[in-house]
């Protein structure tokens, strides 16, 4: 069997889904955050595959940007999580329900 674009995309989608499940199921903000990164990664995979199969550079360039963006997001996100931890001594989302109703 040849590995075509479809296989890559399915792999990417599954990765995306696993990431989503992580976001959905986990209570630890850090792991949720990691799951988000995983989803971005899945997108990257898809992009690279498309770029390769479509013979177009733009996808690969986009990956470059996405990585940077992800890094920046992680930085800000972690900063917020750390501050929250300082305040509440927990990183569980269960405890983060002051804003509701």
């Amino acid at each position: 069997m040849t590995i075509g674009i479809n296989e890559f995309i399915i792999a990417s989608s599954l990765l995306f889904l696993i990431g989503f499940m992580g976001v959905l199921l986990r209570r630890n903000t850090l792991i949720i955050y990691m799951s988000l990164e995983l989803m971005l990664n899945a997108v990257n995979l898809a992009l690279v595959a498309f770029s390769r199969f479509n013979q177009a550079m733009d996808g690969a360039i986009f990956v470059f940007f996405i990585m940077t963006v992800a890094a920046a997001e992680v930085a800000v996100g972690l900063a917020i999580i750390v501050m929250l931890f300082r305040k509440k001594q927990t990183v569980s989302v269960d405890e983060l329900n002051q804003l509701k109703g």
């Binding site: 209570r27 903000t29 989302v93 983060l96 109703g101």
Partner: peptide
């Protein structure tokens, strides 16, 4: 609808889902 707004992130993710 206010009850739906439980304040917990996981529930919110579920909305997205």
């Amino acid at each position: 609808l206010r009850i739906l707004q439980v304040g917990r992130l996981n529930a919110y993710y579920l909305w997205f889902f």
